[in-house]
C-alpha cells in the first residue's frame, strides 16, 4: 500500500461527513440524530460532521417510510453524493414501514427498493448510541482503501 493511500485512510477515518434525509417519518428518529450532536453523545469528537448537503456528504442517513413525494427525489439526491458513499437506514420505518405499514397507507417501504442501503439500525427510534456505532462501524468498511478496491 502506498504512503498516499495510508494518509488517505487516516484522514478519512477522522473525517466522515453525514447528510440526513427524512423521507416521511414521524420526526422521532430525526430527534435521535440531533441528540447525537448533543454534548452527551457528541459525534463531532469522532470526526463525524453533519451537513445537509449531499454534495459534500459521505454517508446518507435515510429516515422515514418513503412517502410518494420522494419518488424521484431520493434517487437524484443519492446520485449527487460523490463516491465513496453509503446509505444507512435509521429506524424501523425505512426497513419495514413500522407502525405505518398498514392497509391504505401511502408509504412504500423498504427504502432499499429505491436506493442501495448498506446498513440498517432497527428501533423506533434507535438510540443515539446505536446510530453512532452504526456510522462508526460502516465508515472503515466503505472508506478504507477505497482506491485500491475500485481498481
Amino acid at each position: 500500500m502506498s504512503l498516499l493511500q495510508k494518509v488517505k485512510n487516516f484522514v478519512r477515518s477522522k473525517s466522515i461527513h453525514v447528510a440526513y434525509v427524512d423521507v416521511g417519518s414521524c420526526n422521532g428518529c430525526d430527534i435521535e440524530v440531533l441528540a447525537c450532536l448533543s454534548p452527551r453523545y457528541d459525534i463531532e469528537q469522532y470526526g463525524i460532521y453533519v451537513h445537509n448537503n449531499p454534495r459534500e456528504a459521505d454517508i446518507l442517513l435515510v429516515i422515514g417510510a418513503y412517502t410518494p413525494g420522494w419518488e424521484e427525489k431520493l434517487r437524484s439526491l443519492w446520485d449527487k453524493i460523490p463516491d465513496p458513499k453509503v446509505a444507512i437506514a435509521i429506524g424501523n420505518c425505512p426497513i419495514s414501514g413500522c407502525v405505518f405499514n398498514r392497509p391504505h397507507s401511502l408509504i412504500d417501504p423498504p427504502v432499499a427498493k429505491h436506493i442501495p442501503i448498506a446498513a440498517q439500525v432497527p428501533g423506533c427510534p434507535p438510540r443515539p448510541t446505536e446510530i453512532l456505532s452504526a456510522v462508526l462501524a460502516m465508515a472503515p468498511v466503505v472508506f478504507k482503501d477505497y482506491e485500491v478496491k475500485k481498481r
Binding site: 419495514s96 413500522c98 432497527p122
Partner: peptide, 8 residues
C-alpha cells in the same frame, strides 16, 4: 421478535 419491526 423481528428487529426492524419491533418498537421496543
Amino acid at each position: 421478535i423481528h428487529q426492524g419491526h419491533c418498537i421496543r
